[in-house]
Amino acid sequence: MISEEQVRHVASLARLGLTEDEIREMGGQLAAILDSIEKIRQLDLADTPPTANPLNLSNVLRPDEPRPGLPREEALSPAPDPVDDLFAVPRID
């Protein structure tokens, strides 16, 4: 079981609001999922390297050349609260 306190902590890390009902449900559901996943922890993989990309690509670079981007007005058009050519947010607390 994952405690309600743990659920609240993880939700706060994720900046995710949850209702009291969701918090109660989530503990049990996450615990059930994690239980089902438990068996991979029993594999001894100390000497196995991790895989992040199935093609083993890393550090793919392209020339750092200026290219046209979206015009500012267009880039701001989907924003919920654009102000003075900028993305606006509420007070940083």
Partner: peptide, 20 residues
């Protein structure tokens, strides 16, 4: 912030939480 739903709130963290 940049697109999609925003639920207004007093303070940016509360805005994130309520929006999500």
């Amino acid at each position: 912030v940049r697109y999609g739903l925003r639920v207004q709130a007093d303070g940016v963290h509360e805005m994130y939480r309520k929006t999500r």
